[in-house]
Structures are given as structure tokens and as C-alpha cells.
Amino acid sequence: MDFPVEVILFLFLLATALTVALLEDLFAAAMMTGIFSLLSACLFTLMDAVDVAFTEAAVGAGVSTVLFLSTLALTAQREKQHPFTWFPLLLVILTGACLVTGTLDMPHYGDPKAPIHVHVAPEYIAGAERDFGIPNIVTNVLASYRGYDTFGETVVIFTASVGVMLLLGHRRRRPGPAHRPTITPEGAARMRDFAIVRVVSMGVIPLIVLFGLYVQFHGDFGPGGGFQAGVIIGAAVILYGLIFGLSTLQRVVPSPLLETGIALGVLLYGGTGVASLLMGGHYLDYAVFDSDDPKHGRHLGILLVEGGVGIAVTCAMILIFYSFAGRALAREAFDEGGGGQ
């Protein structure tokens, strides 16, 4: 019974979570959530969940920290101090105690005979070689055995980003600042003036995008796939926007392109299913794509579906960033353009 590295990482994780709870400076708390995500990504790697670790590192330490910071720029940097009350603490301790009692008859950590390991999982692992010939079992389950779930989740991402756009209206121009065609936020201008930040990011961004593409197309063989690639490429583009400003980024990646892309990604996923229906199979049954070699047909189907997920997730991440950053710029311009008059 020795898991020294995991125990140490867990202690760090708990300490970080406690710090987030205690900090009143929301800016510092947002940075701590980034560290929290990075630590949990390390733990996922130790638990053999390499694909999950990939996603958590790119999402938690990258995209979500940026989103929290953008929200803080639009709202408040500190939270108000409140007198300590016992009721929430008691409630939480009670909940925790109930759950600990519930774990007493759970299978132990790493127990190979646990119920979770004896039902569908052996079938999925055996099927990976028999039906697919694709080494990454996670990709097989994601895109094929559990293809309906993944389609639903892609649609949830689509819906959430549409919701963010509706709430924050990234295209709406407020009255007033029309005489300033290109709005350059002061913050972005200052970021660009830092030579080290600029030079390093210029070197790193192409490599991140290249790595994202590798994760996308090599996802059948190694850890990776559409979700991971989408957040990695999205994070690279957002980094570019943070340093060179939103208006520069929107010249490179215009938002109509992203809006089309996110719908196209969902359509590609759903369309692959419809295509398999039209060719005489079940919905998302890729074997019909190649009547001579079902393995090849399944491979093609997974590639298409993962491509759809990758496109949708990349575009959703960038569009969400546009909505938040655009809101900040619109407000800045509104204030400067005499909005208070």
C-alpha cells in the first residue's frame, strides 16, 4: 500500500482548494484554480487516464483561468468580507460524514475485481483489437461504442457557446464609440510591449497549434482526440489574442468563420450518422462505410466524427473568448466615448 507520489499530489490539491476557499482576492483565487487544475491533471496521469489529463491541463490551466480573469475584469476584483457563520460548515461536515459512511463498503482503490471492471469494460478492451484495429481504446469507446453520448455532449458545447454569445453579444456595437474604428485595449498594448512575452509566445504558439493537430490526427494511436485537440488549439489562439489584442486576432480568425465552424462541426458529426443510416446501417454504425473491410470503415467513421468534435470545440472555445473580451472592449470604448453623459 504505497502511493507516495499520489498522496503528496493529493495533499497539494487539498491545500490549493483550501486556499481558493480562503482567499478574498478573487484574482489570486483565479490563479489558484489554474494550479488546482494542473495538479489534478498530474493525478489523472498517475491514474492512467492520460486522455483526461490532457483535457484537464488544456481546459483548466488554460481556457478556464482566462475566462475567470476576463470575468473579474468585467465585475469585481475582491469579494466582500462576511462574518463567519457555522451553519454552512455544519451542513458540509454532515454531508461529508454521510458520504464517508457510504464509502465503507466500496471496492478499494486499484482493486481489479471491483464491479466497475467486470461488466462492459473487458468487452470494450477486447473489441478494440477485434473490431477496430485502433490502439487507443478511449477513442474507440468515445466515438463508436458511446457515440450517442459524445454527440449529445458536442451539442451541449454548441448550445452553451450560443448561450454565451446571446448573453454577451460579441458583435453588438454600443452607441458612442463608432468614431474609433479599431479599438486597442490599453492592456493588450502593454502586453505587446513586453519583449520576452511577445518573442516567447510567437515561438510557442505555432508549436502548440502543431501539437494540437498531432493530438487530433494521432488520437487513434496515442492519447488524444477531438476534444483535447480542440481545447489545445483554442488555447493557442486565445494566447495570441491576449498578447496582440482582440482586433488583431479577429482579423486573423473572423467570428463569422467561427460561427460557421461550430455549426459545421456538429453537422459533420450528425451527418456521419445520417450517412451510415443512408448506406443501410444503424445510426453511427461506421462499418457500412467500407463493405469489404469493416475495420477500415470504422476507422474512417471515427476520423470524421473526431474531426467534427475538434472543429466544434476549437471554434466554441475561441468564440467564448471573443464574447468576454469583446464585452470588455465595448464597455471600455463606451466609457471613453462619453457613455456617462
Partner: peptide, 17 residues
């Protein structure tokens, strides 16, 4: 077990959305 990995990696991306 690959199944929890699949469910959770999509949950993370849905979570950020």
C-alpha cells in the same frame, strides 16, 4: 478501465462550456 476516462474527458469540456 477506459470507460470512466471517456465519460470524464467529455464532461470536462462540457464543464468549461
Amino acid at each position: 478501465n477506459p470507460l470512466p476516462h471517456v465519460l470524464m474527458l467529455t464532461a470536462i469540456v462540457v464543464g468549461i462550456a
